[in-house]
């Protein structure tokens, strides 16, 4: 009896110190995560708040004063959309991005289908070339592409941008889809072959319907890439009436035309679509990032 008592008496303080230590560790952990999130979110918040502040407020005080003296205005958005051409740029961004995404998914899918599910000489070499092309700096393509599309007289249309954005992402797309296509059991394809399906049917009726999730991953990644790119549209569409949001916002930022608050409104308009997409379709985004990155 006394032995047991003395043992509990001994272990009680020890236990409580280690419990206290654990508690402290937990507090430290949650604090660190909270601080990280705070630091990462504050800039976004500052943008959002500034879009509703007047020019005069912003020139006098920091954005956080909006929480002290809340005087929201919508004039920044009105100005951005009607005076600085951001409204038009929204349309241009859509025209630039949507066909690019569709084309990237289609081209990557047929390429990955051939590489993953057919056997031929040079298959491995081609696949490795795709791996290599993924990390090629896009600057490399600028000069020759510019000469090429100038010669064809296609600059000033969206065609060069679609083609270049597709060409730059398709190697990655093939890499991403290859892994998934290769993992589809060959029994399925063989069963379809015995059932009398031709290769195009196997592709469109068996492979593609099974690959919905990975195709969505590629689509969302390419949407963000194309929607957010600056350099290619800057060069091929210029900052005139065809400029997409990135180019428009960049030129507003550089020229300071329209003032800071209009710029923030324009910027917020340019990020809202990808922000909504990444929050709602996070699952597909994560899958795409991991499918394309983890190669160990």
């Amino acid at each position: 009896m006394s032995a047991i008592e003395s043992r509990t008496a001994m272990s009680a303080p020890m236990q409580s110190t280690s419990r206290l230590g654990n508690r402290l560790k937990q507090v430290a952990l949650h604090t660190a995560v909270f601080l990280l999130c705070l630091v990462w979110f504050t800039p976004v918040l500052s943008l959002f708040v500034t879009t509703f502040r007047s020019e005069s407020d912003s020139s006098r005080t920091g954005w956080w004063y909006a929480f002290i003296e809340w005087r929201p205005v919508l004039s920044n958005y009105v100005e951005a959309i009607y005076l600085t051409g951001v409204g038009r740029s929204v349309v241009n961004s859509i025209v630039l991005t949507v066909p690019t995404v569709l084309g990237t998914v289609l081209f990557s899918a047929i390429g990955a289908f051939a590489l993953a599910r057919m056997r031929f000489r040079g298959r491995i070499a081609l696949f490795l070339a795709m791996v290599g092309f993924q990390v090629l700096p896009p600057q490399l393509v600028l000069v020759p592409m510019l000469k090429f599309f100038l010669a064809l007289g296609l600059t000033g249309t969206f065609i060069p941008v679609w083609i270049i954005e597709m060409g730059l992402t398709v190697p990655f797309g093939i890499f991403l889809l290859y892994g998934f296509f290769a993992s589809i059991p060959s029994d399925l394809v063989e069963a379809a072959r015995i059932d009398g399906a031709s290769e195009p049917r196997i592709f469109f009726q068996i492979i593609l319907p099974l690959s919905g999730a990975v195709l969505a991953s590629l689509a969302i990644l390419q949407f963000m890439i194309a929607w957010n790119h600056l350099l290619i549209p800057l060069i091929f569409l210029g900052s005139g009436s065809l400029s997409p949001l990135t180019v428009q916002v960049a030129s507003l930022a550089q020229t300071n035309a329209g003032g800071l608050n209009t710029l923030t409104a324009a910027t917020f308009i340019s990020v809202i679509v990808p922000l909504v997409l990444i929050v709602t379709l996070q699952k597909y985004f994560v899958r795409g990032v991991l499918g394309g990155a983890v190669k160990g």
Binding site: D187, L188, A192
Partner: peptide
């Protein structure tokens, strides 16, 4: 043909 994995779509 009936496959080991059944190969159902």
């Amino acid at each position: 043909m009936v496959f080991q994995s059944y190969a159902l779509y």
